[in-house]
Write a protein that binds this DNA or RNA. Structure first.
Length: 474
RNA sequence: CGGGAAGUGGCUCAACUUGGUAGAGCACCUGGUUUGGGACCAGGUGGUUGCAGGUUCAAAUCCUGUCUUCCCGACCA
């Protein structure tokens, strides 16, 4: 049964998306353009992401720090590519109290400059290296078109910034961080991603190269979901982050940065959710199990509490819905909020010694013998739901991944059933621009390991250099 | 930033054309009856109409500006 307050996903995808965001109480609009209020249901997802990712970062030797929110203009301007890339979308602070500032400051759109400035003051020797710092914070980019989670002006993210003694070590870090993001997306968010290198046109301003993970949404539109940049010595030379190396010579550090943001919550919605509302993979769901007493008799409540206690002991997050709503309302509420597994406890079932489980992903209802090991049954089902969501998403991604050998084929795909399009590219930016004329198709990433599917560029027909995945992006 | 549409209790809308005391449904509160897929009855609370100016005896309604949201482009995580 579909939810009344949600537009159907196949009727109007954009409307469906915003309907789910508000029906599931993830976020609401504020009075500041492009700045959303992330509500408890939405923030709890972000907190889980933080918990999982933060642990992975700590395990790989990273430490958290906090940098200023303001960047003086001269500091920002030291690296010209970065400022050129971000100039159109920074916000400036020009007054403090009623006094005009001598030098204006921007609100951080990203913190390469601050980290670089800091590193330049504390690094003296190769013994100070590497430094692998991360910060959880919000940044501000003056976006023109905004959508909740996908593109807001202020958004929450983590940005890791590391400095290394050698190029090899920094490149290794760049690669490793992308692998961590891939793991976060695939194993926890149940979102399959493709990964590769950004083209020169699409890479981060100031990077030597950018690695990316790209996810495909239900409607075939792609979402850049996490990036890891290798800077070489660009910033270390601009900001003079130098040290005495093992040969007692001055040398500049090799640097990386990488980040993922609350945008992934948008991805989570657009990959898994449906016309009933939010669907959350168990491993990221703030509440994994909702127990619903059909009618609050002492016996029913007793059973609910017993189940809740044993699930809690097993580390499963569980709640009992004891509001005085009707059973049907509670079912619908658990569904719109994306609770992976619902347990329905009612007198009628109990008389037969059973309780009912309802899966959010398949809507399947399962009768469970009340005397069996409920905890392991729940664990098993949560695991199945997690896998099923991933497999379903993977299957769809594969179905929506095409190969094209001519511009006409690309056009045909993008106009009829957008998705990932694999096609050869000569490396020329003009061809990327030509591609953009087809419904805004852009290169998502260069697949570096894959074998070529053709020998000529899909646009100009000249000798091809790279196999590229193309797509329409959010 | 260009082109289009829209802002009226928390939500969906009516009243606007032709200025004259802002209405309804849902939600919310109280009491009661209910509870296996968004319960029912009765009684209530809540809005000076996004904001700021202007015209007028009188503005939700007319005019100007501005902010926000949505759609289409350009720009971007």
């Amino acid at each position: 049964m579909k939810n009344k307050s949600i537009t159907s996903r196949d009727v109007d995808f954009a409307k469906w998306y915003t309907d789910v965001v508000s029906a599931a109480h993830l976020a609401t609009y504020s009075n500041v353009k492009g700045c959303i209020v992330i509500e408890p249901n939405g923030y709890a997802i972000w907190e889980n992401v933080q918990k999982i990712l933060d642990q992975m970062l700590k395990e790989t030797g990273h430490q958290n720090v906090s940098m200023p929110m303001l960047i003086p203009e001269n500091l920002l301007r030291k690296e010209s590519e970065l400022i050129n890339g971000f100039a159109p979308e920074v916000a400036w602070v020009t007054e403090g109290g009623s006094k005009k500032l001598e030098e204006r400051m921007c609100i951080r759109p990203t913190s390469e400059t601050l980290f670089s400035d800091y590193y330049s003051t504390v690094i003296r020797s190769y013994r100070d290296l590497p430094k692998k710092y991360n910060q959880w914070c919000s940044v501000l980019r003056w976006e023109k078109e905004t959508r909740p989670f996908l593109r807001s002006r202020e958004f929450l993210w983590q940005e890791g910034h590391t400095v290394h003694e050698t190029q090899e070590e920094a490149e290794e870090e760049t690669k490793n961080m992308l692998a961590i993001y891939k793991k976060l997306f695939e194993e926890y968010l149940a979102i399959p991603v493709i990964s590769g290198r950004k083209t020169e046109k699409e890479k981060f301003a100031g990077a030597e190269y950018t690695l990316t993970i790209e996810a495909l949404m239900y409607n075939g539109v792609s979402l850049q979901s996490g990036t890891s940049h290798y800077f070489g010595q660009k910033f270390s030379k601009a900001y003079d982050i130098s040290f005495l190396n093992r040969n007692n010579e001055m040398s500049h550090v090799y640097q990386t940065s990488w980040g993922v943001s609350t945008r992934m919550i948008g991805g989570l919605i657009m990959v898994h959710s449906d016309d009933k509302g939010l669907v959350l993979p168990p491993r990221i769901a703030p509440t994994q199990v909702m127990i619903i007493p059909i009618k609050e008799t002492p016996k029913v409540i007793d059973v609910c509490e017993n189940i809740a206690d044993s699930l809690k002991q097993a580390g499963i997050t569980v709640k009992i819905d004891r509001t005085d709503k009707s059973a049907g309302f509670k079912f619908a509420e658990a569904e719109v909020n994306g609770i992976p597994l619902r347990i329905e406890v009612g007198e009628r079932d109990l008389e037969q010694g059973i309780i009912t489980f309802a899966r959010r992903d398949t809507s399947e209802k399962i009768n469970i013998d009340y005397n069996q090991d409920i905890v392991s049954k729940v664990q098993q089902l949560l695991e199945e739901i997690q896998n099923n969501l991933y497999q379903t998403a993977l299957h769809r991604q594969q179905e929506l991944t095409f190969e094209a050998h001519s511009l006409d084929e690309v056009k045909d795909i993008m106009e009829h059933h957008p998705g990932f399009v694999k096609a050869m590219w000569c490396g020329d930016e003009a061809c990327e621009l030509k591609m953009k004329e087809i419904k805004g198709t852009k290169s998502r990433c260069i697949l570096e390991q894959a074998s070529p599917i053709d020998d000529h560029c899909v646009v100009c027909g000249k000798k091809a250099k790279h196999l590229v995945v193309w797509g329409i992006q959010y």
